[in-house]
């Protein structure tokens, strides 16, 4: 049984947000909704200051609280560990939004699919991509399941110019994910929430 996930090497991340853009282009998410984003922080005091970057996405948690909270079963976990939403079952109760400590669930407000980014109605690309969405329901990162099913890696992974995002299977014994986390003492976000995330980070 696979358990797909990702390791993000913060030493390699340059904060270019190419993953953010690649995800937007691949999934065509509506305005204001980003499955992948790079959280930027300026730390320290002058003259000893620096910027740190933290690329984020859905953690596809093994104990996904969003799936637990969903009253309809619209949010479910695939056998390969990807947490998905069947928007035809979603009632828009937003229980998953308040259940996810990482805020990686996104609600499509009424009217959001009626206008695109340009402000001049929806573009041909948006018309195609928006067909996958349903107003009044929730969406989330699918780990590019449509690409994974074809043997491809997620768009954010293949786009990263510094190979900071490493995609793989956690169940692979001594595979690249397990090895990297062991060697470089990897960590996950908000471990105190006990969600068993499948996205780990390596120190900068």
């Amino acid at each position: 049984m696979a358990r797909l996930g990702m390791v993000i090497d913060l030493k390699r991340c340059i904060g270019c947000n190419a993953c953010t853009i690649a995800c937007k282009q691949e999934n065509g998410t509506p305005e204001g909704i980003h499955y992948a984003r790079v959280v930027t922080q300026e730390v320290g005091t002058y003259p000893q200051t620096k910027r740190t970057f933290l690329p984020t996405l859905c953690n596809h948690c093994t104990d996904a609280p969003c799936a637990m909270a969903c009253p309809t079963g619209a949010t479910y976990i695939r056998p390969d560990g990807i947490v998905m939403v069947n928007h035809k079952l979603c009632i828009g109760c937003r229980a998953c939004n308040v259940a996810c400590p990482y805020m990686n669930r996104h609600f499509i407000e009424r009217g959001l699919l009626k206008h695109g980014y340009s402000g001049n109605g929806i573009s041909p690309l948006e018309a195609i991509k928006f067909a996958d969405f349903d107003e009044g329901t929730n969406i989330k990162c699918t780990l590019c399941a449509h690409r994974v099913d074809q043997g491809l890696e997620p768009a954010c992974v293949v786009t990263c110019p510094t190979d900071a995002r490493i995609f793989g299977d956690w169940e692979e014994e001594n595979g690249k994910l397990q090895r990297l986390v062991k060697e470089r003492n990897g960590w996950a976000l908000l471990p105190e929430y006990e969600t068993k995330p499948n996205v780990y980070y390596l120190d900068a």
Binding site: P71, L89, I91, C93, R94, I108, G136, T137
Partner: peptide, 12 residues
């Protein structure tokens, strides 16, 4: 609810 017409599905 975002989709109130489906509210009965919440009993599942």
């Amino acid at each position: 609810l975002g989709r109130p017409e489906r509210f009965l599905a919440a009993a599942r």
